[in-house]
Protein backbone atom coordinates (compact mmCIF):
# COMPACT_ATOMS: atom_id res chain seq x y z
CA UNK A 1 0.00 0.00 0.00
CA UNK A 2 0.91 3.61 -0.28
CA UNK A 3 3.17 5.40 2.22
CA UNK A 4 1.14 7.10 4.94
CA UNK A 5 3.04 10.35 4.33
CA UNK A 6 1.71 10.37 0.77
CA UNK A 7 -1.89 10.36 1.95
CA UNK A 8 -3.99 13.27 3.23
CA UNK A 9 -3.63 13.49 7.01
CA UNK A 10 -7.18 12.42 7.82
CA UNK A 11 -6.86 9.46 5.44
CA UNK A 12 -3.61 8.32 7.05
CA UNK A 13 -5.07 8.67 10.54
CA UNK A 14 -8.10 6.65 9.50
CA UNK A 15 -5.89 3.82 8.30
CA UNK A 16 -3.73 3.92 11.42
CA UNK A 17 -6.80 3.70 13.63
CA UNK A 18 -8.44 0.80 11.81
CA UNK A 19 -9.07 -1.98 14.33
CA UNK A 20 -7.18 -5.19 13.62
CA UNK A 21 -8.79 -8.45 14.74
CA UNK A 22 -6.56 -10.66 16.89
CA UNK A 23 -6.57 -14.22 15.60
CA UNK A 24 -3.90 -15.40 18.02
CA UNK A 25 -0.75 -17.31 17.17
CA UNK A 26 -0.58 -19.76 14.28
CA UNK A 27 2.05 -22.44 13.64
CA UNK A 28 4.68 -21.74 11.02
CA UNK A 29 4.30 -23.89 7.93
CA UNK A 30 6.97 -24.38 5.32
CA UNK A 31 5.79 -23.62 1.79
CA UNK A 32 6.30 -25.92 -1.18
CA UNK A 33 9.05 -25.32 -3.68
CA UNK A 34 7.67 -22.79 -6.16
CA UNK A 35 8.09 -25.27 -9.02
CA UNK A 36 5.62 -27.50 -7.17
CA UNK A 37 3.30 -24.70 -6.08
CA UNK A 38 -0.30 -24.52 -7.24
CA UNK A 39 -1.06 -20.86 -6.74
CA UNK A 40 -4.40 -19.13 -6.14
CA UNK A 41 -5.19 -15.45 -5.78
CA UNK A 42 -7.45 -14.02 -3.09
CA UNK A 43 -8.37 -10.44 -3.88
CA UNK A 44 -10.14 -7.86 -1.74
CA UNK A 45 -10.81 -5.55 -4.68
CA UNK A 46 -14.49 -6.43 -4.98
CA UNK A 47 -13.98 -7.88 -8.46
CA UNK A 48 -16.14 -10.54 -10.04
CA UNK A 49 -17.57 -11.72 -13.30
CA UNK A 50 -20.06 -9.23 -14.70
CA UNK A 51 -22.72 -11.94 -14.61
CA UNK A 52 -22.26 -12.41 -10.85
CA UNK A 53 -24.19 -10.57 -8.19
CA UNK A 54 -22.61 -7.26 -7.28
CA UNK A 55 -21.06 -6.80 -3.83
CA UNK A 56 -23.15 -4.97 -1.26
CA UNK A 57 -21.95 -2.81 1.61
CA UNK A 58 -20.69 -4.96 4.49
CA UNK A 59 -20.72 -8.08 2.32
CA UNK A 60 -18.79 -10.95 3.91
CA UNK A 61 -19.33 -13.38 1.07
CA UNK A 62 -17.04 -13.98 -1.89
CA UNK A 63 -17.09 -14.50 -5.62
CA UNK A 64 -15.46 -17.37 -7.47
CA UNK A 65 -13.24 -16.35 -10.34
CA UNK A 66 -12.24 -19.13 -12.76
CA UNK A 67 -8.59 -19.51 -13.62
CA UNK A 68 -9.35 -19.42 -17.34
CA UNK A 69 -11.24 -16.13 -17.03
CA UNK A 70 -11.15 -13.68 -19.90
CA UNK A 71 -10.64 -10.21 -18.44
CA UNK A 72 -13.48 -8.95 -20.64
CA UNK A 73 -15.79 -10.74 -18.19
CA UNK A 74 -14.34 -9.04 -15.12
CA UNK A 75 -15.89 -6.07 -13.35
CA UNK A 76 -15.52 -4.35 -9.99
CA UNK A 77 -18.35 -3.40 -7.63
CA UNK A 78 -16.30 -2.39 -4.60
CA UNK A 79 -18.67 -0.33 -2.47
CA UNK A 80 -16.31 2.47 -1.45
CA UNK A 81 -16.38 5.66 -3.49
CA UNK A 82 -12.87 6.28 -2.14
CA UNK A 83 -11.59 3.21 -3.91
CA UNK A 84 -9.41 3.99 -6.92
CA UNK A 85 -10.59 1.96 -9.90
CA UNK A 86 -8.51 3.74 -12.52
CA UNK A 87 -5.64 1.26 -12.51
CA UNK A 88 -7.94 -1.74 -12.66
CA UNK A 89 -9.84 -0.22 -15.55
CA UNK A 90 -6.62 0.12 -17.47
CA UNK A 91 -5.18 -3.29 -16.61
CA UNK A 92 -6.90 -5.84 -14.31
CA UNK A 93 -3.51 -7.48 -13.68
CA UNK A 94 -2.74 -4.48 -11.51
CA UNK A 95 -5.02 -5.85 -8.78
CA UNK A 96 -5.58 -9.40 -9.99
CA UNK A 97 -2.38 -10.66 -11.67
CA UNK A 98 -3.88 -13.74 -13.27
CA UNK A 99 -2.14 -13.29 -16.62
CA UNK A 100 1.17 -12.82 -14.83
CA UNK A 101 0.64 -16.09 -12.94
CA UNK A 102 -0.12 -17.86 -16.22
CA UNK A 103 3.17 -16.55 -17.60
CA UNK A 104 5.05 -17.84 -14.55
CA UNK A 105 3.35 -21.21 -15.03
CA UNK A 106 4.33 -21.27 -18.71
CA UNK A 107 7.94 -20.49 -17.87
CA UNK A 108 7.98 -23.20 -15.21
CA UNK A 109 8.64 -20.84 -12.34
CA UNK A 110 5.52 -21.99 -10.53
CA UNK A 111 3.89 -25.39 -10.80
CA UNK A 112 0.40 -24.35 -11.87
CA UNK A 113 -2.34 -21.77 -11.58
CA UNK A 114 -5.37 -22.76 -9.52
CA UNK A 115 -8.65 -23.65 -11.17
CA UNK A 116 -10.46 -21.12 -8.99
CA UNK A 117 -9.59 -17.80 -7.38
CA UNK A 118 -11.57 -15.78 -4.83
CA UNK A 119 -12.67 -12.21 -4.41
CA UNK A 120 -13.89 -10.42 -1.30
CA UNK A 121 -15.15 -6.93 -0.53
CA UNK A 122 -12.19 -5.22 1.06
CA UNK A 123 -14.23 -2.57 2.87
CA UNK A 124 -15.90 -5.22 5.04
CA UNK A 125 -14.78 -5.77 8.63
CA UNK A 126 -12.66 -8.94 8.35
CA UNK A 127 -14.20 -10.38 11.52
CA UNK A 128 -17.42 -10.73 9.51
CA UNK A 129 -15.59 -13.19 7.25
CA UNK A 130 -15.04 -15.73 10.04
CA UNK A 131 -17.64 -18.02 8.49
CA UNK A 132 -16.73 -17.63 4.83
CA UNK A 133 -12.94 -17.78 5.14
CA UNK A 134 -12.88 -21.44 6.31
CA UNK A 135 -15.18 -22.35 3.41
CA UNK A 136 -12.73 -20.80 0.98
CA UNK A 137 -9.85 -22.62 2.68
CA UNK A 138 -11.69 -25.91 2.12
CA UNK A 139 -12.29 -25.09 -1.55
CA UNK A 140 -8.62 -24.21 -1.97
CA UNK A 141 -7.58 -27.56 -0.52
CA UNK A 142 -9.94 -29.43 -2.80
CA UNK A 143 -8.43 -27.58 -5.77
CA UNK A 144 -4.97 -28.81 -4.70
CA UNK A 145 -3.79 -25.29 -3.93
CA UNK A 146 -0.72 -25.15 -1.72
CA UNK A 147 0.21 -21.47 -2.12
CA UNK A 148 -2.13 -18.48 -1.88
CA UNK A 149 -1.31 -14.87 -2.56
CA UNK A 150 -3.53 -12.30 -0.88
CA UNK A 151 -3.71 -9.10 -2.89
CA UNK A 152 -5.25 -6.27 -0.87
CA UNK A 153 -6.11 -3.06 -2.65
Amino acid sequence: MVRLKDLPKEYAEGLLNLPIPDYGPAPWTDAPDLKDARVAIISTAGIHRASDEKFAGGAADYRLIPGDLDFAELTMSHVSVNFDRSGFQQDPNLVFPLERLRELEASGEIGSVARWHYSFMGATDPSRMDETAPRVAKLLKEDGVNAVILIPV
Binding site: M1, R3, D84, N93, L94, R100
Partner: peptide, 15 residues
Protein backbone atom coordinates in the same frame (compact mmCIF):
# COMPACT_ATOMS: atom_id res chain seq x y z
CA UNK B 1 4.82 -2.11 -1.71
CA UNK B 2 5.19 1.67 -2.03
CA UNK B 3 2.51 2.14 -4.68
CA UNK B 4 -0.68 4.19 -4.80
CA UNK B 5 -3.74 2.63 -3.23
CA UNK B 6 -5.55 0.59 -5.85
CA UNK B 7 -2.29 -0.39 -7.60
CA UNK B 8 -0.70 -3.23 -5.61
CA UNK B 9 1.23 -4.55 -8.63
CA UNK B 10 2.61 -1.08 -9.29
CA UNK B 11 2.16 -0.11 -12.93
CA UNK B 12 -0.66 -0.95 -15.35
CA UNK B 13 0.24 -2.42 -18.73
CA UNK B 14 3.81 -3.10 -17.60
CA UNK B 15 4.14 -6.88 -17.40
Amino acid sequence: VPFELGRPLGVPDDA
